[in-house]
């Protein structure tokens, strides 16, 4: 049996906000340690991996590992009806009914909404994600997630975001990280300097650079990755010219959401 409870729907609403834009369905793995979610976009270019440890839940009972594919668009619709302070209960039996039940209860007026989701096939996930060694990454940038989202929005409004092939070039040297894109009639470059600790900003931009790196990524995917800001104030971008880039948002002390994508390479 699987029975979980969150006394605030906010966390799950934010999770769906962070993934339902780019991913249409996901594999949910419930085990004794918590929830591991994985999804890949239809073109198999991006992968998202989410971990929510059991401690993230106010009540967590999972006496047997249970894996299920769920449609994220349907879930996002259900969660849009939920208020942030609704109590969510997630239940699944092993009665081979291949459904999971989400219950939202409003603490004010006790109104209850019940949604049953049928399991669906998941296109190719879960995959085994190796922990790539730190040494493989030429640069890592940690910055406020709101700042990253703002940059992606600016570049999308300037770049020809209608054009499926608009790329953003992320370049890192020891002082700053640059975001560059080419529009129809010009180019746009946004330079973020590494903040000195003396500035004591509430959210620093920090750069760890082994060697300079400059990589091109699809701007549409960058935009979708920046939605992880619903779950964390900071994003860490790990860049390597021969490994998938990782955009990681730590979720308090209970988990993380990581988006993976390969840089575009010259033919």
């Amino acid at each position: 049996i699987l029975e979980l409870r969150l006394v605030q729907a906010t966390l799950f609403k934010n999770v769906l906000e962070a993934i339902s834009d780019l991913f249409s369905k996901a594999n949910f793995d419930f085990s004794g340690t918590g929830l591991e979610l994985q999804a890949m976009d239809t073109s198999h270019v991006a992968l998202v991996a989410l971990l929510l440890r059991a401690e993230a839940f106010n009540h967590y009972l999972c006496d047997r590992d249970l894996s299920m594919g769920l449609n994220l668009a349907d879930m996002a619709k259900a969660f849009r009806c939920a208020n942030n302070d609704d109590i969510i209960t997630i239940k699944a039996e092993e009665d081979w009914s291949d459904t999971v039940t989400f219950t939202f209860e409003s603490p004010e007026d006790g109104e209850i909404s019940i949604f049953d989701f049928d399991f669906v096939g998941t296109n190719g996930v879960p995959l085994e994600i190796p922990e790539f060694p730190e040494s493989e990454y030429q640069a890592k940038v940690r910055m406020p997630s709101a700042k990253f989202m703002r940059i992606c929005k600016k570049l999308s409004s300037f770049g020809d975001s209608g054009d499926r092939d608009t790329v953003v070039i992320i370049s890192v040297d020891k002082e700053c990280v640059n975001f560059f894109t080419r529009g129809k009639t010009g180019t746009s470059t946004i330079v973020c300097r590494q903040t000195q600790t003396v500035d004591k900003p509430k959210e620093p931009t920090l750069i760890e650079m082994k060697e300079q790196v400059s990589l091109a990524f699809d701007l549409r995917y960058m935009n979708s990755f920046s939605k992880g800001s619903t779950l964390s104030d900071q994003v860490t971008i790990s860049l390597s010219s021969n490994l998938p880039a990782v955009f990681e948002y730590k979720i308090a002390e209970t988990g993380y959401i990581r988006y993976y994508m390969l840089p575009r390479i010259e033919e």
Binding site: H44, L127, E128, D218, Y260, L262, R264, I265, E267
Partner: peptide, 14 residues
């Protein structure tokens, strides 16, 4: 033109 490789080339089936 630059090409976009699939993520599955780096992550194997569970």
């Amino acid at each position: 033109p630059c090409i976009q490789k699939k993520i599955m080339e780096y992550f194997s089936k569970d």
